[in-house]
Structure formats: structure tokens, C-alpha cells
């Protein structure tokens, strides 16, 4: 359990949010030309990092907006939050 500083609503309990997994996985521009290996990479393979991870969250019990987060998965400390489309702040 931790607090999350929603970029739109401010600091709220983590239970108001839904984790959306690894961030910055770009949807293939030409899906019809993707090989099976590339599909597997896009759909299923995850970095699953122990340490600093970039991820997406949604404030489902609040503004219901998506945003990005940089979090240390080894101790759940949040390093930064930033809006969708923004460049991640240098860590």
C-alpha cells in the first residue's frame, strides 16, 4: 500500500488506482507485417524489472485518466509521475 500523486487529482491512496503494466510499449505501426516472434514480444514479453520500472496507471476511482509512473519495484517507492505523451523526467 502506498500513496500515488495523480498528475490530475493530487495525492491519493493506491487502492483508488489500477496498474496498467509496463509503459512505453509502442503499438506496431504495420501490424500486418509483424512476424509471430514480434507479436509475442509486443503482446506477452515483459521486462518485469526488479528496480526502476516505467509503468502505466489509471486513476479508476478518481479522474479515470491514464498516466505514467516511474517506480522502484524492489521497495514500491515512486520516483516520478508524468502525463501520457510526456517524455519521462530524467531519473
Amino acid at each position: 500500500m502506498f500513496l500515488i500523486n495523480c498528475p490530475f487529482c493530487g495525492e491519493r491512496e493506491q487502492s483508488e488506482f489500477k496498474a496498467g503494466g509496463e509503459a512505453h510499449i509502442v503499438r506496431p505501426k504495420q501490424p500486418t507485417e509483424l512476424s509471430d516472434d514480434e507479436w509475442a514480444e509486443y503482446l506477452f514479453m515483459r521486462k518485469n524489472i526488479k528496480g526502476i520500472q516505467f509503468e502505466r496507471w489509471n486513476h479508476i476511482h478518481g479522474c479515470r485518466k491514464w498516466f505514467n509512473m516511474i517506480r522502484d519495484t524492489s521497495n514500491d517507492q515512486i520516483k516520478a509521475v508524468y502525463k501520457m505523451g510526456e517524455k519521462p523526467p530524467v531519473k
Binding site: M1, Q14, A19, N48, I49, K50, N75, D76
Partner: peptide, 14 residues
């Protein structure tokens, strides 16, 4: 399970 990746061996109270 919680829905976020974590290695902290602590889950959420809710």
C-alpha cells in the same frame, strides 16, 4: 494478488 509488479514482498491492505 495486487495488480502491480512488485518485489517488495508486501501487498496492499485492501
Amino acid at each position: 494478488t495486487d495488480d502491480y509488479v512488485s518485489y517488495s514482498q508486501k501487498g496492499s491492505h485492501d
